[in-house]
Simulated assay, not measured.
Amino acid sequence: KEMLFICENGTIVFEKGTCIYVNEIERSKLYQVLDIVRNIEGVYPIFCGVNSAYIEDDHPLLVKNAGMYYHRLKRVAYLEEVIGVDRICKVALYDTIGAAQNAYLKCKKLSGFFSIVTSGKEWVDIANPLVSKGKVVHYLKERYGLSPQDCYAFGDYHNDIEMLQEVYHSVAVANAHEDVAAVCRFHTLSNEEEGVMHYLKQAFHLKM
């Protein structure tokens, strides 16, 4: 309750337990997304809302991986059930074939209406146009009077690039995508080696 959280690629922001910003996807557009992604082999959609994340399939890999990222995860018969019930701000696609060569390419037809970005080897994120973590970081810098030198950001995949470009202390973990590593000034250990904590301990001389 003492922290500020930028969630779902900058579409939701919580400050001290209160939701202060929501960038909701228009309801009619959610149906459009479902019409396309349900016809892509190996792809499973997740609706990401303010109150919870939602899945409609019980594929074990989907359940396992979605459970890693969403503390609140509900399974429903059809995702259409939650349209208008929760404010859906992002559609995450879990791709068992490979996001870059499968879901991302087949969803590019939506790029005129959505922001579409890979967020991992198996993940594609769909949100409103111009949405990014970087946009919200820029807003928060202005809100709190922070300079780029005041801010640290850590990233590993394409959905982190705009955020990393907003700060001076841009840090790529060792297992980051090469595009992410290229825009960062600094580097640290991999995710599996707790690279973020390692870097923060060194930067702030913390003993934990």
Rank of each mutant, 00 (worst) to 15 (best):
K90C: 05
R75A: 03
M68D: 13
E80V: 05
P60R: 11
G112Q: 07
G98E: 09
K74W: 04
Y94T: 06
G84L: 05
S111W: 01
F114S: 03
G112H: 12
K141D: 08
N128P: 00
H138T: 11
N102A: 05
V50M: 07
L79T: 07
P129V: 10
V63T: 14
L146C: 00
D95F: 03
L61G: 04
G134I: 10
L73H: 13
V131T: 15
N51Q: 12
R87T: 01
K121N: 13
K64Q: 12
T96M: 01
V76Y: 13
L62R: 05
N65H: 14
Y144D: 02
R75M: 12
A92I: 01
Q101K: 13
I126E: 05
A53H: 10
V63C: 02
K109R: 11
F113D: 14
D125Q: 03
L140P: 01
E142F: 00
V91Q: 05
V124P: 03
V50K: 14
G49W: 12
I83R: 07
S111G: 01
P129S: 11
K135N: 09
K108E: 15
I97H: 10
L110I: 08
G67D: 06
I88H: 12
R143H: 11
R87K: 15
D95P: 00
A127Y: 07
Q101S: 12
V136P: 00
K106S: 02
N51Y: 05
L93S: 04
P129A: 10
G112P: 00
I83A: 07
G112I: 03
R143C: 02
L110H: 08
Y104P: 01
L79C: 01
L62C: 02
L79D: 09
D125T: 10
C107A: 04
E81I: 03
R87M: 11
A92H: 04
L73D: 12
K135A: 14
L73V: 10
F114D: 02
K64L: 02
L62F: 04
